[in-house]
Amino acid sequence: MALLEVRNLQTYFYTYAGVVKAVDGVSFSVDRGEVLGIVGESGSGKSVTAMSIMRLVQQPGKTVGGEIIFDGIDLLKLSDREMNSYRGKRIAMVFQDPMTSLNPTLTVGYHMMELLSRDPNLKTKKQKIDRAIELLRAVGISEPEKRLSQYPYQFSGGMRQRVMIALAIALNPDLLIMDEPTTALDVTVQAQIMELVKEIQERYHMAVIFITHDLGVIAGFADRVMVMYAGKKVEEGDVYSMFEKPLHPYTEALLSAVPKLDMDRSQRLYAIPGSPPNMIAPPPGCRFHPRCPYAMRICAKKMPVAVSTDDREVYCWKVFKEMGVVESV
């Protein structure tokens, strides 16, 4: 059985302008020890999906439908108190901006001790301090004894993200959700943090949901990738086959938009034409059709159905047609 199974998740935001269906019927699953990448443009619903799993979607947003089965239990049916016992302990999360994710008025040590006091195996203060030092060392922070009494402003961005990762793994969660953990960092620091994330994932054999808009970041890390567009899943599959042969036109466009080192200087970087859809009144049919070079008449009329092969799931009429199962619609 999968560790996490999300079924038909719907999280809507009720704004004055109208209802924004930020996540509109998304289903996926993550096995123990597996790394799932979620990719998409800004506003595609990646982060909202993560926040929905944590049940931390803020007003005016609300998860209005679906199931989030974690280790056999539907998180959406838990009381607030029960859900709180999952957060940090079973499911942990690392956020995008390490500069603002730590309380500026508390020491790094306080952040860690506060969390470690929920670990029943650590009884004395000494044990907790030792564990905090061990964790900081595990994420590559030198002189951890000294660092514990320092404040976040005394840490650089990369170091803060290491602290956030240490906090996330402190209670040995089964699932770690990382929401663009490297986006706010310098490129060289990005690479270091990615190395650390990989190392940690392998050492503790955690399941990871890694959210990013950078396909390059995910290529060497994820087992599977899910591509989202305008609140919907458009394609999901094994990372190698997907990058080798993207089926959905959007995935293909995303891959073309990645800059390559062997690119000629005179070549222009490919950009997907058009802009992300208005989420209050999304396009009818396939939400990508106004920007899709292969759009057919049906694409503007009907939502694509899933086309599944052994390692892929694609929502696209073109793929549907090519697979040769076309019926007249």
């Binding site: 944590m54 931390l56 803020q58 709180n84 016992s85 999952y86 957060r87 940090g88 302990k89 942990a92 999360m93 956020f95 901006d97 603002t100 994710s101 730590l102 309380n103 500026p104 506060e114 969390l115 929920r118 956030m164 906090l167």
Partner: peptide
């Protein structure tokens, strides 16, 4: 963000 992050740690 740090309030959101604190909630996500289950405090």
């Amino acid at each position: 963000d740090y309030v959101k992050a604190a909630k996500a740690r289950g405090l």
